[in-house]
Design a protein around this nucleic acid. Structure first.
Lengths: 141, 141
DNA sequence: TTGCACCTTCCCACCACGGGAAGGTCAAGC
DNA sequence: GCTTGACCTTCCCGTGGTGGGAAGGTGCAA
């Protein structure tokens, strides 16, 4: 099948498939005499795997590792698990950072009456955080 | 003062200050006869404001709006508050997405024994999500 | 005058694509 | 056989927000 069909079946945009090939995430596809890329069902399976890993937020480099493990019959599941756990930790760190920011913002917003007067604790907090509640003070970020 | 000193005092890297100037976030700095950028205390205040807004995750475009409001004596605090609330909503969406992903990953990791055997529910879940718990099924992403 | 720290502009790299241009290919319909 | 339109190809630019580094000019002190 052509790249468009592979894209439809895998959920990965044709542009993105070409990108994945260019960065070596997936092997180079075969070509017709006219230069069109050719894919089979196995390729689509691989693309689907990549698509799901990406939608779980794994960086492309990690997806490459996951693909390699997937294709390795002698893999140790501990390696896969370590990758996934690392990703979970990264997510936890990101969530903690976002929630810290959210708390600061919510505090500022609460104090702002939000009418047509210029007086605004949000701007004051940005101009001088000591007046606006601590921000990122003990932050993990 | 030179850009290096302004960077030190504001917490914004010299490179980043030049970038902010190039995209119009901050006005063009004055120059010495030799072409060096010159900053005063007010400029440093502005840079600090920008630095704090950025560290709260506001995109540069929003920081531009915040700066404009900050410099506008006739602003309505409602406009500032709306910006901040919009940012909070964006953060909430991001957090929800990350937590959804986290749940899926945690489920997969739990099921993986993580030893030297190749059997691995994480890879199986990526290859075929119907066997690995739902992922992003009703997802907001 | 030498040396070093600082400044300037410029381009490249990151990450993971998306848009779009310029041009070739294929299959269907007339 | 020719047109039409959908598909494919490569290539380059843009995103956001910097960081790194090259090549070259400045400023100040010894």
């Amino acid at each position: 099948m052509n790249i468009g069909e592979a894209a439809k079946r895998s959920g990965v945009a044709a542009k993105t498939i070409r990108y994945y090939e260019s960065v070596g995430l997936i092997p180079s596809a075969g070509r017709t005499a006219a230069g069109y890329r050719v894919y089979d069902r196995r390729d689509v399976e691989t693309l689907r795997f990549v698509h799901r890993a990406r939608s779980l937020g794994f960086p492309v480099k990690d997806v490459a590792s996951l693909l390699a493990l997937w294709n390795d019959r002698h893999r140790a599941s501990a390696d896969v698990r370590a990758l996934a756990e690392g990703h979970i930790h990264a997510i936890d760190a990101k969530v903690a950072e976002l929630q810290s920011i959210r708390r600061t913002l919510a505090t500022l917003v609460e104090r702002c009456h939000g009418d047509d007067r210029p007086d605004c604790p949000i701007l004051e907090g940005l101009a001088d955080p000591s007046t606006g509640g601590d921000c990122c003070g003990g932050g993990t970020a």
